[in-house]
């Protein structure tokens, strides 16, 4: 073994002097910031825009369907983003839960086709609020996405784009829970198409931002 060069020894001295800085865990920071931010943005939106009028009547079941989709997205993406804070995890582990969402969407579409048949499928897909869906969901997700990326910067992900993408998906999921209470488009085909597309857009934004912001 060669002799220790002086400088690295001194460098270690420097690091040891900084030991009391005690960084907090980025996973804790993520939960502490993303969830309250999403709740605040979501409730602010619902206060301004109002819930759908028939929320407690005919609208209840479709609203629940949308909220379940949003909750599933968050449930699938948040643990993934948290796990990837650690540098030594493999990247396929966080992706497994995402398959659940595909199953849920398939069930939605299958049920719709079974009960209403294939006729008018295309019309049902388009509905009348595609633009609202594709703008409001990403807008609601933006702030939670930014704070979660800030929290994740304390982490040590070896897959920055994936981490950012999962943060985006989680933020979109939380945004969907709020938007679902407002939106009156109840066709499963509509929800499966446009809600998913909105979530994918936010995930893509998260991935692009993560690629740059989450390197360390």
């Amino acid at each position: 073994m060669e002799p220790e060069p002086m400088k690295t020894e001194h460098f270690i001295q420097l690091l040891a002097e900084d030991l009391p800085s005690r960084p907090g865990h980025p996973g804790t920071a993520l939960m502490r910031w993303m969830l309250p931010t999403a709740i605040l943005t979501g409730s602010a939106f619902l206060l301004l825009a109002g819930a759908r009028a028939d929320l407690l009547g005919d609208g209840l079941l479709p609203t629940l369907m949308k909220m379940i989709l949003g909750a599933l997205l968050a449930w699938a993406a948040i643990p993934g983003a948290r796990t990837l804070i650690r540098p030594e995890v493999s990247i396929d582990e966080p992706l497994r839960r995402l398959a659940t969402i595909a199953v849920f969407l398939a069930v939605l579409l299958g049920a719709d086709l079974m009960f209403r048949g294939a006729d008018g499928w295309f019309l049902r897909m388009f509905g009348s609020s595609v633009v609202a869906c594709l703008t409001i969901i990403p807008s609601l997700a933006l702030l939670p996405l930014i704070v979660s990326l800030c929290a994740l910067r304390g982490g040590a992900t070896t897959a920055p784009a994936l981490s950012g993408g999962l943060a985006g998906l989680a933020s979109a999921g939380l945004a969907i829970i709020a938007y679902g209470v407002f939106c009156t488009e109840d066709n499963p085909v509509f929800v499966a198409t446009w809600y998913s597309l909105a979530a994918v857009l936010v995930a893509a934004l998260g991935a692009i931002l993560g690629r740059n912001l989450l390197r360390w």
Binding site: T8, F11, I12, P23, H25, P26, P87, G154, A156, W216
Partner: peptide
């Protein structure tokens, strides 16, 4: 030695992970 020190610094700054 540069990379070793950069790694030590990363170990230090990311130790909470």
């Amino acid at each position: 030695e540069d990379i070793v020190q950069e790694t030590l610094l990363a170990i230090h700054l990311k130790r909470a992970t």
